[in-house]
Design a binder for these strands. Sequence first.
DNA 1: TAATTTTTGTTATAATATAACACTATGTAA
DNA 2: TTACATAGTGTTATATTATAACAAAAATTA
Lengths: 132, 132
Amino acid sequence: MQNQQVLTKNQKIVLDIIEKSSQPLKAYSILFDVKKRGINAPLQVYRALDKLVEIGKIHKIESRNSFIACKNSKCQITKATVFSICENCEDVKEIHDHKLSEHLKHYKDNKGMKYSKYNLEFFGLCKRCIKN
Amino acid sequence: MQNQQVLTKNQKIVLDIIEKSSQPLKAYSILFDVKKRGINAPLQVYRALDKLVEIGKIHKIESRNSFIACKNSKCQITKATVFSICENCEDVKEIHDHKLSEHLKHYKDNKGMKYSKYNLEFFGLCKRCIKN
DNA sequence: TAATTTTTGTTATAATATAACACTATGTAA
DNA sequence: TTACATAGTGTTATATTATAACAAAAATTA
Ligand SMILES: [Zn+2]
Ligand SMILES: [Zn+2]
Ligand SMILES: [Zn+2]
Ligand SMILES: [Zn+2]
């Protein structure tokens, strides 16, 4: 039931802001946006973010310290994420590639480690930025 | 010649500390360690770190905001990195897996993006931590 | 030499994230 | 219902990570 969880007021407010954005948002930019809705302190935002990441509603883009909504219900179970990031315009998209996911999910190293999660970030130039 | 570059004094000091550590180090912990060697300010450390990352001598572990020395000369060209991170003891190892690297290097999405770089972080439990 | 670029040292500050504590709401079990 | 446990809230303060701005020194180049 983890991914059908009832969200609290603050969690809903923060998720709402992130879902309405096409691009990843930073914690303090979210804080700025939600001040008119009664959230006043960083910690209130970070707590909501932590929970939303935990239940898979959003993902953290580690290299950018920012947060993006997940549109794929499968992520909420797998905690396996792949992103494409344009280094020029900072456009970020989540990649859902079944073959790639399977490959990574089943990856085994020779050190006897047991993996439960992965995060892959591709960097480059998006179509639009290549042209310019 | 990028990866045979002559390092400056500060860059050498910082690289030396990181290479002597088996585990990733954080910028301010590096700063603490190098104070006896004449480096006094965060910026001096961050500047050295930036350069060392740029030339591939070290990598940043994005999810941990820490830095680890690279032992594989190939990384210095490819900017393609894979890490395994134990979520219990925080042990980090760089993974060099030719097949995986090739797979990722040649990955193409359907959005027309041109990738020049990637970073993959696997999370789980290391052999030792599984037993305990 | 002079001009240019890179690195340095320094102070200050920005941006990102968590600790600690008292309190409130919600769920679960006598 | 009461008691207890769990999770979330609001708040203040603080820790951690990272960069801006500027003047001076060193290294590179022409
Ligand atoms: Zn997702
Ligand atoms: Zn772009
Ligand atoms: Zn490497
Ligand atoms: Zn471990």
